[in-house]
């Protein structure tokens, strides 16, 4: 009897269809993830003249990236691992990387959607307009910045197996990132905390995003922030891949 091995592209296409359908059926939770940066964007309308449109947009996109990477990706992976869905897929004739690639592509699609929504709401509600290059580079930087947070989400599901503990941990890390990152950058938590926030994954990604939204403002410090972001992404991905287990036993 002939042994049929499907092409990776065919498997990826089947997995993507299933993962997008799953995401759509869970749209209540992904709506919540999308709503957080938009609510902050609308509520900061009065701060735009003081902080600048680029700072407001980059902060909101960074918060959105944090929500998707931590709350969306890691919780979905932890839940499906606990249900044995990965094990069921892995006994089929497919490579493990196709399963994770499909998950990541779905999250990157969400990040693109979130970034576009922030641009649209920013334009119509907060009256923030950028150059075409700013929108384009900003979008690219958002996708690149997502590597840090998807990597962090991967590291959390790599180090923690229990889905409830993953959920609690991601909420805690999310809260810490938002509070320390956002308020630290405002300078309300003191100089030292401000420095930590600037060079934290939150601060470096926000800085790179801000420079992406206004490409003319790219400086040496932005390059350092970019390199730091790459370093964070590599560190998180290495931890996430090294310690990740497909089953929860």
């Amino acid at each position: 009897m002939e042994t049929r091995i499907p092409k990776n592209s065919a498997i990826l296409s089947a997995l993507l269809q299933a993962d997008f359908t799953t995401l759509w059926r869970n749209r209540r939770s992904f709506n919540m993830v999308l709503l957080v940066p938009l609510i902050i964007l609308v509520s900061w309308k009065g701060l735009v003249p003081k902080l600048g449109g680029v700072f407001v947009l980059s902060s909101c996109i960074t918060i959105g990236l944090t929500s998707i990477g931590l709350m969306g990706y890691s919780n979905a992976v932890a839940r499906d691992r606990d249900r044995g869905i990965f094990q069921r897929l892995r006994v089929g004739p497919l490579e493990g990387w196709t399963i994770m690639s499909s998950r990541l592509i779905v999250q990157v699609a969400m990040i693109i959607l979130m970034t576009l929504l922030v641009f649209i709401v920013g334009y119509f509600v907060d009256h923030i307009s950028l150059t075409p290059a700013g929108y384009l580079v900003g979008l690219v930087m958002a996708v690149l910045g997502s590597a840090v947070y998807l990597g962090l989400g991967q590291a959390i599901v790599g180090l923690i197996k229990n889905p409830e503990t993953v959920n609690t941990t991601t909420r805690l890390v999310y809260f810490a990132f938002i509070m320390i990152g956002m308020f630290g950058e405002f300078g309300v938590l003191g100089k030292e905390i401000g420095q930590i926030a600037t060079w934290s994954p939150y601060g470096t990604v926000r800085k790179v995003l801000a420079a992406g939204l206004d490409p003319a403002s790219w400086q040496l410090a932005t390059t350092y922030a970019f390199l730091a972001s790459v370093g964070y992404a590599i560190l998180f991905v290495v931890i996430g891949v090294k310690y990740f287990k497909w089953e929860n036993k």
Binding site: M1, T3, R4, I5, A18, T22, D80, R83, G84, I85, Q87, R88, V91, G92, P93
Partner: peptide, 14 residues
């Protein structure tokens, strides 16, 4: 794996 069919203990589907 293409030549085997597997039924796990739990029905692990989405």
């Amino acid at each position: 794996r293409a030549n085997m069919g597997v039924q796990l203990q739990a029905t692990s589907f989405q």
